[in-house]
Design a binder for these strands. Sequence first.
DNA 1: ACAGGAAGTTTCCCATTGGACAATATCCGT
DNA 2: ACGGATATTGTCCAATGGGAAACTTCCTGT
Lengths: 196, 196
Amino acid sequence: MSEPAPAVEKLIGTRIAERRAELGITLERLAAATGFSKGYLSKIENSRKVPPIGSLSRIAAALRTDITQLLHTPAEAGEGGGLSVVRVGERRPVVRGGTAFGYDYVSLADNRRGKKMEPFLFTFPSQIDKYVFFEHDGEEFMFVLSGRVEWQAGSRRLVLEPGDSIYFDARLPHRGRALDGEATAVVVTYSPKPGE
Amino acid sequence: MSEPAPAVEKLIGTRIAERRAELGITLERLAAATGFSKGYLSKIENSRKVPPIGSLSRIAAALRTDITQLLHTPAEAGEGGGLSVVRVGERRPVVRGGTAFGYDYVSLADNRRGKKMEPFLFTFPSQIDKYVFFEHDGEEFMFVLSGRVEWQAGSRRLVLEPGDSIYFDARLPHRGRALDGEATAVVVTYSPKPGE
DNA sequence: ACAGGAAGTTTCCCATTGGACAATATCCGT
DNA sequence: ACGGATATTGTCCAATGGGAAACTTCCTGT
């Protein structure tokens, strides 16, 4: 039986070793910090043992890193993936939602999975069908390109002019509309969930 | 010894269950896809068992997710403002870096911790001191406001005009410069690390 | 050159755990 | 109530996490 073994696990050891080198600390010090024996840690770094999640978490903490850093995806998403360009003329209106809530917006990146941020070009029309609040996990950034936008987030209500930007926790109920005529803005959202 | 144990592991099960619900597939189908028994998977979802990294990786693959998604530490810190506005006139040049590399850029959000995205207003000058590549963890989004920018990411080199945008894996070595005169762009970076 | 040591590796071993299997429980629709 | 799906739980053996300590290198001083 062949082991195709893309083996995320093989990398963990190297990552830990690299990180420890960065910090310039010895195996023994790491052992003291984590509570593991230096022998065990050595085996881990050389990929002879794979720690369970809990242990890896302790190690990550001792190395002042996040556990996800140590698990960093193997194949560096290389060509094809990794990059997406959207030209002015190539913008495609977002399928889901679209103009549904009275806003027009187009996606500024293709829909490849694993993306951490979701960029949109928003157009606030002069009239909005349903002026409702949005409230979702994650964080949101908006940069006003043109027009004036009245923005409400939480208890605050403010008017944003071109060039103004705002960053907020998307769990705050928020909504916005153009004050006179139309307004456009670049909006980037971050969402902890995979997406979809 | 008491176990303070914030236990990242408790969350894994829930994450998997949620993700499986999203996909609308049954335990049995997941069992078939992963090669594990449905009984075992059930225990995992209920946090009665914690899978080792390799197994978790297989599960993540079957759920068409990344392993890091399943381990992602939950929402930390809620309030404390949750909102920050930067007016056109109030932009402050970023301290670290600043014009160091030949680029001018100002932060478009204050430096509160825990922020997931980091928005900047970039100005590409006509002359750049050191035209070096950047390469860091995370992802990056750029929306060109004015001027023409020659951008290189990985092996690709392209010219972006106002309104064009690009999204890419920041591990790809990347750099950019204004083609004629000056150029400005909104740049938003996402970095998996807490900070620094 | 040799003695001391610090950092890292490997061997040996056992207590713990991963994970299959089958039985049981829960939730439908008819 | 009965059947058929899906989910949970108890049992149990093989696999593994992980410690203790011996064994390497590679210094640095005398």
